[in-house]
Simulated scan of single mutants.
Amino acid sequence: MHFNSAERFRGVDLSRVADRARRTLGDDVMILHTRTVRDGGVPMVEVLAAPSTAIDRVRARLEPAPFPVNMRKADGRPYCIALVGPTGAGKTTTAAKLAVRRGMFGAARPGLLTIDTYRVGGMEQLATYADLADVPFEVVYDAREVDAAMKRLSGTCDVIIIDTPGRSPASAELTERWRSLLDALAPDEVHLVIPASLRADLAVDIGRAYRATRNHCGATHLILSKVDEVPRESGISDLALSLEMPTRWVTDGQDVPSDLKPGVSRLLRAWGLSADAEPDWMPA
């Protein structure tokens, strides 16, 4: 599914090209990308432009609702953000980025909780980051431990980041167990973490697998991970739009916590570039 309403314009200098775009698309036109090309040996400026109304439509599809002013509920319960997704998508590293980045949630203090007890390395990774950043950390193995873990975190935390196991179609029983455990935690947001390099049809299939069911809560938001692995970031906006979920963040590297960016601004910057875009387009 493609959402591109951008058009190309070419001329000898940027001001003339911008004027042509404005006459064609309206006074509210926005220049998305520019590049220099040669036409019959003559250097030309080419731009990719779209009406601001089209940009607004894309933004509306991607923009999440703002966080509540007070991250704690009336009963004192912290705001809970869970990360779900396939194995290798980068959930654990993303959870660490969210929890240890100073000021990520304003003055609200974050905590970490994992229900990924099937992968020892993941627990150790989160425990290390939590220790280095002085972030409270809990491991929950079954539903009987949820209340006690939440009570301990509620004493010091206003928002809790929840890491979950990767979903494997070959382990339906394990999937049922951790999804039931996640339901017991009752997250306020469930972010589906999808690698930006994934084929769109596979991403849509994964999105369906994480939908809410009669028995389980489902994904409410999207995080595109590993954006740095997509050449020129082309096609990533279409991928996000095809999943039809608001996108708070994208990740673009392994560095914790720096390689985490606001999702909408990054996706709008890449919007208009198709998956087979030429390599020399530059964001305007």
Rank of each mutant, 00 (worst) to 15 (best):
Leu132Met: 13
Glu124His: 08
Ser168Phe: 10
Ala127Arg: 14
Ile160Gln: 00
Arg144Asp: 15
Gly155Lys: 11
Arg102Met: 10
Gly166Trp: 00
Ala108Asn: 11
Cys157Asn: 05
Ala172Ser: 14
Gly121Asn: 09
Pro110Ser: 12
Glu173Val: 11
Gly122Cys: 12
Thr156Phe: 09
Val139Gly: 08
Phe137Asp: 00
Pro165Ala: 11
Arg102Ile: 09
Thr117Gly: 09
Asp131Gly: 09
Gly103His: 11
Ser168Thr: 10
Arg167Leu: 13
Tyr141Asp: 07
Thr114Met: 05
Met150Phe: 04
Asp142His: 08
Leu126Thr: 03
Val120Cys: 11
Thr175Tyr: 07
Met150His: 03
Pro169Asp: 14
Pro110Val: 04
Gly111Gln: 06
Asp163Leu: 02
Leu126Ser: 02
Pro169Trp: 04
Arg144Glu: 15
Thr117Phe: 06
Thr114Lys: 00
Ile161Val: 14
Thr175Ser: 14
Ile160Asn: 00
Asp147Val: 07
Arg144Asn: 14
Thr156Trp: 07
Glu138Ala: 12
Pro110Thr: 09
Asp116Glu: 12
Gln125Gly: 06
Gly121Pro: 11
Pro136Glu: 12
Ala99Cys: 10
Ala133Ile: 04
Val135Asp: 07
Thr164Asp: 05
Gly103Tyr: 08
Tyr129Asn: 12
Ala99Gly: 14
Asp158Val: 06
Ala133Trp: 01
Arg167Asp: 11
Glu145Thr: 02
Val135Trp: 03
Thr164Trp: 00
Leu132Arg: 13
Pro165Trp: 02
Val146Leu: 04
Gly121His: 11
Val100Lys: 00
Gly121Val: 04
Ile162Gln: 01
Asp163His: 02
Ser154Asn: 12
Pro165Leu: 04
Arg167Ser: 10
Val120Met: 15
Glu145Met: 10
Ala133Ser: 13
Ala130Thr: 07
Arg177Met: 13
Tyr129Lys: 06
Val159Gln: 03
Ala107Gln: 14
Leu132Asp: 15
Leu113Lys: 03
Pro169Met: 07
Glu173Trp: 05
Val100Asn: 02
Phe105His: 09
Ala149Thr: 03
Val140His: 03
Arg109Pro: 02
Val135Ile: 15
Met150Thr: 03
Val120His: 06
Ala127Ser: 15
Ala143Met: 07
Glu173Pro: 04
Gly103Ala: 11
Ala107Lys: 13
Ile115Tyr: 01
Met104His: 12
Ala108Val: 09
Arg144Ala: 15
Thr175Ala: 10
Ser171Gly: 05
Ala127Lys: 12
Ala130Glu: 00
Glu138Ile: 03
Cys157Gly: 08
Arg144Val: 09
Arg144Trp: 07
Thr156Ser: 13
Asp142Pro: 01
Leu126Asp: 01
Ala127Asn: 14
Thr164Phe: 01
Asp147Lys: 11
